[in-house]
Design a protein around this nucleic acid. Structure first.
Length: 263
DNA sequence: ATGGTAGGTATCCTA
């Protein structure tokens, strides 16, 4: 099974790019974040025409929103809110074999990495903590689970273009990296991408729109992740980041991250 | 130290 996660940054504006990504990667399951559209206006017919018979949308107007497109049948559809904030950031379904799939858009956290002056940063940390507490309580490490999405944190030194220069930049601060670490430990998650591509190798999935030349400056961060619980760790076969998609017409600022599992 | 771009919406918010 091939699963891809991609922050699409407006699904309606990006349908041609979505089609090119599907033709290039041929994923069985494609998890989208930041669809920026409410459920009724999601282009369901267009994605079904790409071969995804099973479509689960958890959208909202203007901001956030997640969707799962699948060629495999999906069982159930749950949505979760964290921190009592009505943002559509988390949906859950089941893949064949009873595998629980989580599609996540973790809050970006604003500009100032101080929870006392920046409510968005506090929300990001609280979101991570509440989800970790939830997974710890249900002993999720024993379940067959996949968690994917835009986690908005680059945990490793090689996940950013400059570890030193980003230590005080939201997405790579020690407090965020620790919060993400607790979330990862909460269900014993294996970072499927780093299980394939060694942690020594620099690897990014996001480049700012603001760079004059994103590829030349290459100031990227690895914000998008695919994690699996221990019962699925031995199924990991391959992982890749479609860097070239950042250079296509009408790119998202994120590129797709793909993992192959032998289930 | 600063400002740079993009998307959706409404003339600003979020990333």
């Amino acid at each position: 099974m091939r699963i891809t996660t991609w922050n699409v940054n407006s699904v309606r504006l990006r349908l041609a790019t979505l089609e090119r990504i599907v033709r290039t990667l041929e994923p069985d399951v494609l998890c989208l974040q930041e669809i920026k559209v409410e459920d009724q206006l999601f282009p369901t017919d267009a994605v079904k025409a790409l071969g995804f018979d099973h479509v689960l949308v958890h959208g909202q107007r203007n901001y956030h929103g997640v969707a799962i497109l699948s060629k495999l049948p999906l069982d159930g559809h749950a949505q979760r809110n964290w921190c009592e904030v009505d943002h559509r950031r988390h949906q859950i379904t089941h893949l064949p074999g009873g595998i629980e799939l989580h599609n996540l858009y973790i809050p970006s956290g604003g500009d100032v990495p101080d929870r006392n002056v920046n409510p968005k940063f506090a929300h990001k940390l609280d979101f991570l903590a509440e989800l970790a507490t939830h997974w710890e309580a249900e002993a999720a490490a024993d379940k067959r689970m996949i968690a994917v999405g835009d986690f908005n944190i680059a945990p490793l030194e090689t996940d950013v273009w400059s570890h030193k220069q980003l230590l005080d930049v939201v997405s790579h601060t020690p407090i965020e990296v620790e919060a993400l670490g607790r979330l990862q430990r909460s269900a014993g998650f294996v970072d499927a991408v780093r299980a394939v591509i060694p942690p020594e190798v620099k690897l990014y999935s996001w480049w700012s729109y603001r760079a004059r030349d994103w590829s030349a400056s290459d100031r990227g961060r690895r914000l998008d992740h695919v994690w699996v619980t221990p019962p699925l760790a031995s199924a990991i076969r391959d992982a890749s980041v479609l860097r070239e998609a950042r250079g296509w017409d009408k790119p998202s600022d994120h590129v797709p991250v793909t993992v192959d599992l032998d289930l």
